[in-house]
Design a protein around this nucleic acid. Structure first.
Lengths: 321, 321
DNA sequence: CTGAAAGCGCTTACAG
DNA sequence: CTGAAAGCGCTTACAG
């Protein structure tokens, strides 16, 4: 075909604004794809890490006509060996795409190298490793989320000091907790509020209740009036409050676990920051689908909103549609 | 076919978990549909009522392979005649579904009657008329939204009184503003906070700046420290604050209009309640699509979240994906 | 009423 | 390299 004819035809196509019918296209091409997810194992069906998978399943179900399938892999958050073992299984499976929560920096790096060698695209969820060659990151801007928490706590706290609590075993592997703390401190720095002193502490073992006494002592001795929990474990503080019948504490934490929202409703926790984990899972699968099956472009950053949840609006965040 | 054979076959279908391929099904059936939207005419491209339509267009574009089309109708918010005229055009068009914002109670009722006579399903957006035979309502629970606003204002307000401002011409036709006000008052009632007296006022004409003096006088004479604006017009109060160089006011309003977020960033407005209008439009079309084209069930209530937006998290609500 | 045939708008393997 | 033919998994009009 002559180049000039070609151009004429292309021009007409554009003029008519021709859009191929994607129904017919996928039906005829019979493409299909297998995606893998690698998230922490939730300790119970109520656990945080079931939520992203709810969204994953929903999108997979919607895409069943495209033949998209999912394989779920989970690892133990306090055992990097299990992460390595599951990562190996994924490489063996040779999926067409992977959604992963990059816990364990070093081990995640090794998995990512192998994924790249095999040309398998991957999407980060929950927390990100910058410039690792990911197709996309879906989750909160952790630093800014800490910023928001600081502002809210300051809103409600007229005096007294603040305690930041990390309930975590290997802080080094939980970069987003560090980022949240940093944002939290920076807000107070930036706003020149000298009303509150801020302290930070770590609780790595909650199997027994020994940690409770220690924290209780800190609250008393340091005149703590506000508490910021950097992850979804604020319900531990709720239990502490009930055990020692503490009052006059303003508490802020993360994520709409059943136990957390119970304490929110009771008025023991004032704020929960929510990151829509179901939406994260849903969107992560969608990114892979668009890239792998539809060959369309996807945006690299996809910060989810930093939702401020209080007793009065919690009911409108509970259901994922 | 014998009934017994029929049953056997149905059983096997169920056992195999047969799911018809919807790609093939829609391609073969060649169904198509025309939907109509009836929203207020936005005064400018920045106006609130463009936002739901952005979501409508997005979903329509995604569904183009299904042959779904949209016809947009708009009316003048201060002219019920224009509503009636547009409603007549819609009935003449005989669309397969309608998304409407039920302003003008009486006139909306008449449109709804005609839609029912013609078996045209309809979805309410923004505010609802209860038990009107709608397929679905998508929007906030206005009463609860007022409740949230009250709690937030109380959080930040240590003393002084509160002024509720309606910027609206025909309050009778704006039921959700009344609901927001009611929720606002009820929260203070319920929480037994006697710290603040609450006053309400209406501003029906903002064409000139005469209203400003009046409100300024009220603020001074009634020791007003907090202001709650029941709709998206809080930017008027922002202008008032700048004009008279007021300070020490805590202000809460609705909706992420450009002008509103500007005042939020400047620190003049403390809170904006956001109702994700683009999502409302998107979901409304989706409801009609599921019902009309896919013949699937849709849920009748679909309350959108009551998002609390402050300077620190506003950036994560601005873009609609 | 039943069942085979045509067709929806594409992709892809294959004959020429 | 080009172009006609077959086929994706359904729906629907139609012959029997």
């Amino acid at each position: 075909m002559a180049e000039s004819t070609r151009k004429k035809i292309l021009k007409i196509i554009e003029e008519l604004d021709y859009q191929p019918n994607f129904l017919a296209s996928t039906l005829a091409s019979k493409k299909s794809a297998v995606f893998a997810t690698l998230f922490p194992e939730p300790p119970s069906p109520e656990g945080y890490w079931n939520k992203p998978f709810v969204g994953v399943k929903k999108r997979i179900h919607e895409l069943r006509a495209y033949g998209v399938q999912i394989e779920r892999f989970t690892f133990n958050q306090s055992n990097s060996k299990s992460f390595v073992a599951e990562a190996a299984k994924i490489i063996e499976l040779q999926p067409d795409g992977v959604v992963l929560a990059p816990f364990f920096k070093k081990e995640s790096g090794q998995l990512i190298m192998k994924l790249k060698e095999n040309n398998i695209p991957f999407v980060f969820i929950d927390s990100e490793i910058k410039n690792a060659g990911q197709l996309s990151y879906i989750g909160q801007d952790s630093y800014q989320s800490g910023f928001v928490s600081a502002k809210l706590l300051d809103f409600t706290l007229r005096s007294g000091n603040i305690l930041v609590i990390h309930f975590a075993k290997e802080m080094d592997n939980q970069n987003h907790l560090v980022q949240r703390e940093k944002g939290f401190y920076d807000w107070f720095e930036k706003s020149n509020t000298e009303n509150h002193k801020i302290f930070t502490t770590e609780v790595s073992d909650t199997d027994t209740e020994f940690w409770m006494e220690k924290i209780k002592d800190e609250i008393d001795s340091k005149n703590i009036r506000g508490i910021f929990v950097t992850n979804s474990k604020v319900f531990y503080v709720g239990r502490l409050v009930e055990k020692y019948k503490l009052n006059n504490l303003k508490i802020i934490g993360h994520d709409l676990l059943k136990e957390n929202t119970d304490f929110l409703r009771k008025g023991i926790v004032q704020f929960l920051i929510c990151q829509r984990p179901e939406e994260q899972g849903y969107n992560a699968v969608n990114k892979l689908f668009r890239h792998v099956v539809q060959k369309r472009k996807v945006s690299e950053k996809n910060y989810t909103s930093i939702d401020i949840v209080i007793k009065e609006n919690v009911d409108y965040y509970k259901e994922f549609k």
